[in-house]
Amino acid sequence: MRILLLLLIGFLFAKADESFLMQTHIRMLPKIMALDTRLASKAPSSKLILAIVYDTNKKANAQLIANEMNTIHNGKVSNFSFTALPVSVDELMTRKEITFVYSIQHTTAPSIKKIAAWGIANTVPTFSYDVNDMEFGILGSIAIERSTIIYINKNTLKEGKYRFNDTLFQIARLVE
């Protein structure tokens, strides 16, 4: 019983932690997108598209996150208007107007690799829910440790020729 209770408490804490991290991602990712200095030239249309990428059966989660993001930011970040859209990995490969990619939780490693490769090829910043995804070439992620930390993949940053506002690098932690 005790073991069950501990497991329940651990589960509840884990859920709460995930929720808090997700909320942090939802709040911060559009703003990090706005720090891309090539953003204005990348978006021919008036609205930027922040793609919430999912694997085949996670569209509902992606939709939920996109809705939450659009609600919180009210479609605007900094001087830009944007829309968060759920986009599947395959769909992402075909679309060109996307300006920022966020890979949701539990995306598979092959998908992550595809997303990272696509991001590097199109110089579109790719962030992932899981910090470990950065091993597959994802540009960055946000983790909550003693404080909120933005991780940037140094190699991907170079490879994808990304350009961000310099201040980002003052608070971000660059990793290899």
Binding site: R27, M28, K31, S147, T148, N165, D166, T167, Q170, I171
Partner: peptide
């Protein structure tokens, strides 16, 4: 200032 500005912008209050 830049770091604080960015932190404030990003909502990082730590």
């Amino acid at each position: 200032n830049p770091a604080i500005s960015l932190a404030l912008f990003l909502g990082i209050h730590d």
